[in-house]
Design a protein around this nucleic acid. Structure first.
Lengths: 106, 106
DNA sequence: CTAACTTTGGACAATAATTGTCAAGACAAC
DNA sequence: GTTGTCTTGACAATTATTGTCCAAAGTTAG
């Protein structure tokens, strides 16, 4: 089954698997250790720069991390709505529509 | 085909169909007319309270408006990502998972 | 137990984003 | 011209986010 860890949980697992102290990873990412601690526990949001750096540090495909990162955001935004399934369908259609438009005007 | 108007465009169409001046709708919603103008043109975000009031004013199902409202948000958040389709799938799985957990602990 | 190391929590100022409000501008109808 | 409509830009006030520090709490090793 697919992994449903939050991005924070995934970061923590990557870090622990590498047996790297939080402090060490924080310094590689050039962020405060308490900030990283909060990101791992979902108390603060990560950002794309951090995600990409983490992918580098652990030599993994950044796409996977980004999918996790963004799906967290989406889940957070609409997770309380009962119509979430419909919302996601319409959102996808909107995105596709915007892209189609964009390609036309290129 | 499904309607892919943004929430702002939908509000404007509802208002124009009712031949109601912007100023009038703004006052019903108790917001500044310039704010409503910007919402209709997507320059500012609406919020749930406004959406629900609009549904009332025009006697339509608020679910439809909310789907449009939230799908705009999702589309905005991830519309530039090439993996949007994957993101949406994972987001749905996460939401379902969270709900399943919640029901268990009730 | 103490000491060293790791993580967490709370506080704080600085910065950025959002919100509500206003007044003036643009535009058309009459 | 005036009237009615909508848009634009500016502004302060509020709220959210961010980076930072340090002390407290938890963990491990000696």
């Amino acid at each position: 089954m697919k992994n449903l860890d939050s991005i924070g949980e995934q970061i923590r697992k990557l870090r622990e698997k590498a047996e790297m102290p939080l402090r060490k990873l924080a310094s590689l990412l050039e962020i405060d250790q308490s900030t990283l601690s909060k990101i791992e526990r979902g108390e603060r949001k990560a950002n794309i720069q951090i995600i990409e750096q983490i992918a580098q540090v652990f030599s993994i495909d950044k796409k996977k991390l980004l999918v996790n990162f963004y799906s967290d955001i989406v889940s957070y935004e609409i997770g309380e709505e009962n119509t979430y399934s419909e919302i996601l369908k319409v959102a996808e259609a909107k995105i596709e529509y915007k892209r189609a438009l964009k390609n036309k005007t290129l």
